[in-house]
């Protein structure tokens, strides 16, 4: 059993959760993920590590409450347990030898951007972070980013309630156009990653994206997470989750992410009808 040892609500629908998993914590490198099951009837969902401590034996992840599984997860408290947690899965993000890097974290993607940016600074890279969200109170991990030895932290919100008003692609384009960056790492919703990649393509800045397709086993056995990269089918769980953003077929990825939209809505609605906290 994997005991919940930490829980923090970061915004209305976004939670940070820490789980005791010493075996996993000792192995994690930035960009890797775990697969968890909340309970015995639960589905297996992938979540990327946002933080971990090998010494203290815990791992953390951040999730947005969007469906039944994340609803159930948000109802766990410190002292409760997950049925399962397995990992660390996926190929770690390349963090060294990248020169001047812009790390873009959009929405909940900031949860993944944080350990990646941290590892890059530890590896000696010169890191600029672009942290974006729809509005100020949806910005997450801002304080954590502020204490990293970054070249610069740029805040962007759609409505201008914090930092620059607009989309993350605006400062990204300025950096790329001015020749101030050698590499981009973009993590966030598929649509954001798509536009980040389109922004940098024009300036020939290599851009890595961290994909988040649907997964089941997470070990290469089922192929649910397949994505087209340069026209070749790759499995995000064992070949990724990081890929060359200029080669990813984002339209296909977004379409595949929507395959169970109706089923997810049905399951969530039924869960909320039965769930005690909503009675």
């Amino acid at each position: 059993m994997f005991e919940v040892v930490h829980k923090r609500q970061l915004s209305d629908a976004v939670f940070e959760m820490g789980v005791r998993a010493p075996r996993i914590a000792g192995k994690i490198r930035a960009g890797q993920f775990l697969i968890l099951r909340v309970d015995e009837k639960g589905e297996r969902i992938p979540l990327t590590f946002s933080d971990w401590s090998a010494e203290e034996g815990w791992v953390r992840f951040i999730f947005m409450r969007v469906g039944k599984t994340t609803h159930k997860l948000s109802h766990l408290e410190v002292g409760d347990s997950l049925a399962d947690a397995v990992g660390p899965l996926g190929v770690p993000t390349r963090v060294d030898g990248l020169g001047r890097v812009a790390v873009v974290g959009g929405g909940v993607g900031a949860a993944v951007a944080y350990p990646v940016a941290r590892a890059m600074t530890e590896a000696g890279s010169d890191v600029t972070v672009i942290l974006g969200a729809r509005t100020a109170n949806l910005l997450i991990l801002r304080e954590e980013f502020e204490v990293l030895p970054l070249h610069e932290l740029l805040i962007v919100t759609d409505d201008g309630s914090a930092g620059e008003k607009g989309l993350v692609t605006a400062p990204l384009k300025r950096l790329a156009a001015s020749g101030a960056i050698d590499h981009v790492m973009a993590i966030g919703p598929a649509i954001m990653m798509k536009f980040c990649a389109e922004t940098t393509r024009e300036f020939d800045v290599p851009t890595t994206v961290s994909l988040n397709p649907i997964m089941v086993d997470g070990t290469g056995m089922c192929g649910a997470c397949r994505v087209s990269v340069d026209g070749v089918t790759r499995f995000a769980c064992v070949d990724g989750p990081d890929f060359d953003g200029h080669a990813v077929d984002f339209e296909e990825l977004m379409s595949r992410q929507r395959v169970y939209t109706e089923e997810e809505r049905e399951a969530d609605a039924e869960y909320l009808r039965e769930c005690e906290c909503h009675r």
């Binding site: 009837k41 639960g42 589905e43 297996r44 039944k68 599984t69 089941v216 395959v259 169970y260 089923e263 997810e264 049905e266 399951a267 039924e270 869960y271």
Partner: peptide, 15 residues
């Protein structure tokens, strides 16, 4: 494994 034939009682859907 995920018992999708019991969906939505089991959480995993199948098309």
């Amino acid at each position: 494994l995920m018992r999708a034939y019991e969906f939505p009682a089991a959480d995993t859907p199948v098309w």
